[in-house]
Amino acid sequence: MNFTLRVWRQRNAADPGAFQEYQAKDILADMSFLEMLDEVNIDLVHKNQEPIAFESDCREGICGTCCQMIDGEAHGPETGTTVCQLFMRSFKDGETIVIEPWRARAFPIMKDLIVDRTAFDDIIAAGGFVTANVGGAQDGNNILIPKPDADTAMDAAQCIGCGACVAACPNASAMLFVAAKVSHLAHLPQGRPEKARRALAMVSKMDGLGFGNCRNHYECEAACPKEISVAHIAKMNREYGSAALLSDQDPSS
């Protein structure tokens, strides 16, 4: 298979950036999208041109490192898939493929297809945890957790922090990412003591980092490689609403 690639090239954060065209030749249907880019890069080095900068690590869809807009879709045309698990058999021979980085104010572009997603770590640091110092834990079976609760918590906890939800959202909102963590921990008895504080702190941090508001487009759910449901956003809104109503604590304390 052969493809024409239109790839976003940008030297650094200050550079305005532009699309450049490359040819991907003799590509096999069984190659992953990133293996196709590897081959293009090897070819570029042989031509003494600087290869395309893009990030990936586990290449099995779980680490959340890879992030590319492919023909305007976060992680490309397949549903429930990261770029690294996208295979060339999903494309037609001879096609032109447009590859861009995530575009969101809160994820500044660093080089070519690499963006800075530190904002997600900042949101977790604000409240996405259970306060459970090492040493004091009781036996893991002492608190029974109904299976449906454990399963729902797990559904939400699958988030890989890739940022596709933000990239796909017309408002670049991080609601699905935040909701996934709020919902995961609020469904477990261990997470409940600080659930109000958590929801307030994470939402407040998200708002401060330049993410947009949720307007219920649900593009996030469609783009999510782990198919996390927007029902968790509803759960977060309940948690946030009741926390804001019932709690008089300052979320920053």
Binding site: V130, A132, A137, Q138, G140, A150, D151, A153, H184, L188
Partner: peptide, 8 residues
């Protein structure tokens, strides 16, 4: 410890 920290 992991249960206490919210591992599902």
């Amino acid at each position: 410890q992991c249960v206490a920290a919210g591992v599902p």
